[in-house]
């Protein structure tokens, strides 16, 4: 599980380099996200542009990251591919995240917040 992190003035973006977050990698994803977001701005954007597949374990791990960040920080999502978007929609977890069409929109939103 490879993550690419970029820290900007008001937002830290984390791009998942792997093409799936599934039962085989969910725990590793959660641990790497915790390390990647330990310091930095309150707002975190998770860029899922390369993720073609997310199962319920992967979804649970993303929710767990939101909880790990705590009430004073915020996790937003960007660039959901069709199958990943479907998982969020069918489980109604799209209602607990702000979802941006792409990373640029997420960063612009953070800059104006």
């Amino acid at each position: 599980m490879q993550l690419q992190t970029q820290t900007r003035p008001k937002v830290i973006s984390v791009s998942v380099i792997d093409d799936r977050i599934d039962a085989a990698t969910a725990i590793q994803f959660k641990e790497k996200m915790r390390d990647a977001t330990r310091n930095g701005p309150a707002r975190v954007v998770l860029d899922l542009a390369r993720v073609q597949f997310l199962d319920s374990s992967g979804l649970g791990a993303i929710v767990a990251v939101k909880k790990l960040l705590g009430p004073d920080r915020i996790l937003e999502l960007a660039s959901l591919t069709p199958t990943v978007e479907k998982v969020f929609r069918l489980t109604r977890m799209d209602s607990i995240f702000t979802i941006h069409p792409n990373l640029d929109a997420a960063v612009a939103h953070a800059a104006s917040a």
């Binding site: 199962d55 977890m93 607990i96």
Partner: peptide, 14 residues
């Protein structure tokens, strides 16, 4: 999905 942050579900979606 409407629970407080720390009570949000991490499983049970399958």
């Amino acid at each position: 999905s409407s629970a407080p942050l720390q009570d949000l579900p991490e499983g049970g979606f399958g």
